[in-house]
Design a binder for these strands. Structure first.
Length: 196
DNA sequence: AGCGTGATCTTT
DNA sequence: AAGATCACGCTG
């Protein structure tokens, strides 16, 4: 399947959060090892309209990558041990982003199992911290983009509307009521937040 | 249900 | 300079 190009990432953040479901995330390791997963859960983060977004008060040292061109990868470190993978959306300087919260592991399973210390498939990438670890993503990836040799997305047929579920976001205290989490209904690889 | 772990942001 | 918070995951 072909790679997704620039215009795919330029859509409004909420639409991109839905469109990303089902797409294949690819990380190529040195030695041409493919680590890949199918995105099954996302969350939208806007900028100034969204109190829970890192960008809601404007540009800082940490969030500056969110202001870059769509398709850029924004990684940050939290709780002293986890890296979070975000994909920048909207036109440049708007600072929208989509948090990738869960994937279904596809290729590189042995590597992922070693990274994660488990071989239970539904536990490899069923959460944002877990998937970053499984895909060998850390702070060095911050600011890279999805148009190079190392990271990109592969296309997949759009999902039927009835397979897409919506809920409030998880793990935040501000703007809790916003229904900006998107996930594939009844998929066993979504995080242990809320299921329907 | 409780806590580790460290960067970042807010308040003094 | 100090304190609070955190887009989490693991043990128990």
């Amino acid at each position: 399947m072909e790679r997704l190009e620039k215009q795919f990432y330029e859509q409004p953040t909420l639409e991109l959060a839905e469109q990303l479901l089902g797409k294949i995330f690819v990380h190529i390791l040195p030695g041409n090892i493919r680590l890949t997963g199918r995105i099954v859960e996302t969350e939208a983060y806007l900028s100034h309209q969204d109190e829970a977004s890192h960008a809601w008060r404007g540009r800082t040292t940490r969030n500056q990558i969110m202001f870059r061109k769509p398709g850029t990868i924004y990684i940050y470190f939290t709780y002293g041990c986890h890296y979070m993978l975000n994909i920048v959306s909207e036109p440049e300087h708007c600072a929208g982003a989509v948090l990738v919260r869960a994937m279904e592991p596809l290729e590189g399973l042995l590597f992922m199992q070693e990274q994660r210390g488990t071989s239970v498939m539904t536990n490899l990438m069923s959460g944002p911290g877990k998937l970053a670890r499984a895909l060998a993503i850390d702070g060095n990836c911050n600011g890279q983009d999805l148009f190079g040799k190392e990271f990109f997305l592969e296309n997949a047929p759009p999902l039927p509307k009835e397979m897409i579920a919506t809920s409030t976001r998880v793990g935040i205290s501000k703007s809790r009521e916003l229904p900006w989490r998107k996930f594939i209904r009844n998929n066993p690889h979504v995080s242990k937040g809320k299921v329907t």
